[in-house]
Computed example of a mutant assay.
Amino acid sequence: MKDMHGPRHRIILPALCWTARRRDFYAITTDISAEGVRFRSSSLLIPGEDLTCSIRHIGLLHARIDRAVGQEFVVSVRGDGPALASLARHFMALSRAQDLSVEPIRVDRRIVPKQKVVTVTLEDGHAVSGHVLNISASGVALLIDRTLELGATIQVGRKLARVVRHFTHGLGAAFVESFEPGDVHDAMTL
């Protein structure tokens, strides 16, 4: 997600925080950006206050509250250049490790067909073998020995599809034209 402060990187970490006027309240990080670290808390805070937080996997963070709206507040971290750069790299590594990308909501029932081996024809015309993990009216999850670009068009059996996600040794593809829900059963063939 982007805003006027550049990209935001989601990261969810619990924190125990305190200010000079408020002792020991809980907060949780929500994201980091060039703007600072964004938190959520049930405590209502005042911009301009100095804040200390003990954040899981980060340690002690000394900051100033720059903005507070409702339950959200944004802080700028205090410290010198090298320490801030190291802290930013650590936050980014934790953000990547959490991989909080939103998984699309599945609305179609998935089944595991009896016929699991299928021919997958790539955009360049080459055919490779794929193993169907599951299938629904709108898409298929395949194990395949190729890494394909997101958005690539492939043919799974006789059905045209687009690659929409990757996972270890496989991919998820959405059919260009969905099956009728009644046509999805364990004896179906692609």
Rank of each mutant, 00 (worst) to 15 (best):
S42Y: 05
V184Q: 02
K116N: 07
M1N: 09
I46K: 13
R21T: 09
G172M: 00
T153R: 15
R162T: 06
S33P: 00
I11F: 08
G59N: 02
D186A: 09
L94K: 04
T189V: 12
A141H: 12
L148E: 00
H62R: 14
E103I: 12
I55D: 07
A141S: 14
I135W: 05
R158N: 11
L60P: 08
G59Q: 03
R22T: 10
R89A: 15
L44W: 06
G151H: 01
P181K: 05
A15M: 06
V128M: 10
L160E: 09
M92Y: 14
S42F: 08
V117P: 01
A83Y: 06
R96C: 03
A85F: 08
S41Y: 05
D99N: 14
V140T: 02
H131Q: 14
S76I: 10
G139F: 07
R8W: 06
G130H: 02
V102K: 11
M188V: 01
H169G: 13
L16Y: 04
H185L: 01
D108H: 14
L87R: 10
I135V: 15
S136N: 06
A137N: 10
H126T: 15
M4A: 13
V74Y: 05
S178P: 07
P7W: 11
L190G: 03
P7A: 12
A68Q: 01
I105L: 14
S42L: 09
L100H: 01
F73M: 02
V128A: 10
E149A: 15
E35R: 06
K114V: 14
N134T: 10
L133E: 12
Q115W: 05
R40Q: 08
P181A: 07
E103R: 14
K116P: 00
I58G: 02
M1P: 04
V107I: 10
E35S: 10
R165P: 00
V132S: 01
R106M: 04
V69T: 11
V107C: 08
F39K: 06
P82T: 10
D3V: 04
H9P: 01
Q71I: 07
P14A: 09
V102S: 11
R40N: 07
R110I: 13
H5L: 08
H9S: 07
H126G: 06
S33Y: 06
E72T: 07
K114G: 03
F39Q: 04
R21P: 03
